[in-house]
Write a protein that binds this DNA or RNA. Sequence first.
DNA 1: GTGGTCTAGACCACT
DNA 2: GTGGTCTAGACCACG
Lengths: 134, 134, 134, 134
Amino acid sequence: MRFSIAPSDSTPIYRQIVDQVRREMAGGQLLAGDAMPSVRALAEEHTINPMTVSKAYSLLEAEGLLERRRGVGMVVAAVRSAVSPKQRLTLLHPALQAAAQQAAQLRLPADDALALFKRCLAQHPFDGDVDGKP
Amino acid sequence: MRFSIAPSDSTPIYRQIVDQVRREMAGGQLLAGDAMPSVRALAEEHTINPMTVSKAYSLLEAEGLLERRRGVGMVVAAVRSAVSPKQRLTLLHPALQAAAQQAAQLRLPADDALALFKRCLAQHPFDGDVDGKP
Amino acid sequence: MRFSIAPSDSTPIYRQIVDQVRREMAGGQLLAGDAMPSVRALAEEHTINPMTVSKAYSLLEAEGLLERRRGVGMVVAAVRSAVSPKQRLTLLHPALQAAAQQAAQLRLPADDALALFKRCLAQHPFDGDVDGKP
Amino acid sequence: MRFSIAPSDSTPIYRQIVDQVRREMAGGQLLAGDAMPSVRALAEEHTINPMTVSKAYSLLEAEGLLERRRGVGMVVAAVRSAVSPKQRLTLLHPALQAAAQQAAQLRLPADDALALFKRCLAQHPFDGDVDGKP
DNA sequence: GTGGTCTAGACCACT
DNA sequence: GTGGTCTAGACCACG
C-alpha cells in the first residue's frame, strides 16, 4: 500500500499513518493477513524516524487492527477488517462537519461548496488500484 | 462578533481564534476598521487567559489582518478585508480535498459522500446574523 | 515648524515629537522665544490624541526646553537653545552606531554602507527652510 | 551562532533575537538547513525565559525563515536563505534614512555625519568569524 | 482604558 | 531530547 506522509502538515506523522491504515482497512484495501511494510522500509521511504512508524504500528496493534507475527512483521488482523458502508460514512463525518462549518464562516452558498467537493471527489478515484489487487 | 471557543478541542485555543477571524474577514462579517473585542474582554468572556487571546491577535497582526491602534485596541486592517467568492472557495479547498481523500480511502461512493456533506451544510446556516450588520 | 508623525512606527508618538523638537532646537531652527503650535492644532493636524501632544510638551517643559507662557502657549525656553557642533554629533551617534552594527551583521562592506548613507544625506537637505526663517 | 542579548535595551528581548537572526540569514552566516540552538539552550545561556526564545522562534517560523522539525528543533528554512548584496543594502536603508533625517534636523554638515559613521563602522568588524564557517 | 513583555511553572505531544 | 500550550501574576508603556 501507498502512504502519503506530509511532515509539514500540522497533524503528527504517526497519526497520519494510523488514520490512513484505519481507513484503508475499513475500505477493504487492506485485508486480513496482508503484510504491512516493515518499520525500517516505511521509515526510509519517507525519511522519517523509525520510532515514529513503530509508534503508529503499536497503536494499531493495541487497537487490535494489526498483529505482530514473529519473523514476518506486522500483518492485518482478522477482526472486522471490513466495515459496513454506513459505518464508513460515520468515519467520514467529522471531516465534512468541519468543512461545512468553514463554509458557513466563509459565507459560501451550499451549492458552491457542494460543487467544489464534487470536483475534489473526482480527483480521488479510489487511488492506486483500479484493477483490484494483483 | 461572536467567537466559539472549544477548550476541549485538540486545536489550540489561540488557533481557533485566528482561524475564525481569518474566515470572518474573508466572508465579509468583519470589515476594515471594525474594532476587535479587547483582549481582556474576550478572555473574560470565555474564561481563558488574556495572553492566549493576545497571542492570537499578535499573529493576526503579523499577518497584516489586524492593526494595533495604540491606546485604542485592535482593528481590522484595510488590506483585502473582503475576498472574492472565488478566493473564498480556495480557502475551503484544503478541507474538501482532505475529505475527498478520506472518502476515497474509505471506498465510499461519491454520491454518498456528497449526500452526507449536504446534510452537514444544512446544519450550519450562516451562524448568527442572517440580516448582516444592523 | 513641520513635524513628521508616523503612528505606525514602533517608537511612541509622544517620543517622535520630543525627539524632533530636541533636534530642531539643537540645530538652531527653533530659537528662544519661538512659539510652539498649540496642542489642539498639532493634534488635529496629525489626527492624534491631544493628550499625546500634551505629554510630549510636558516632558520638554520638565527638561527645561519649553516654557508655558500663560495666554500664549508653549514657547522655546532661553536656555542653551543652540548646541555646539560637537554636541550635535554626539546626538547623532546612537543612530549611526546602530546602523553600523546592522551593516556588520549584514556583512556589508563599509564602503557600500557609506555610499548609501551619503545618498540618504543628499535626500535630506536641511528640510523645509532653505531660505532661513521668514 | 552567537547572539548578543542586552536585557537592559529598550527593544524587547524576543525582538533582538528575531532581528539578529534575520540579518545573519541575509548576511549568509546562517545557511539553509542549519540547526538553530535549542530553545532551552539559548534560554539558559542568556538566563532568560524559554518562552521568550520560543516566541522569537515562532515569529521567525511564521515569517517563513525558520522551519520546525518535529522532535528535532528549528532549522533555517530553504527560502532565500542568502540575499543579494543589493537586497542587503535595502535592509540597511531604513536605519540610514532615519539617521540622515536626524542629521538634517541637527543641521549637521554631511561630511561630519559621514566621518562619524565611518568611525562607527570601524568599531564593528564582522563580529566573530572573520574566516567564515570552518 | 488599551496591549506588550517577561517570568515561573506545569503539562503535553512528538521523535 | 525537542518545541507547544496554557495559566497566573507582575510590571510597563501608551493614549
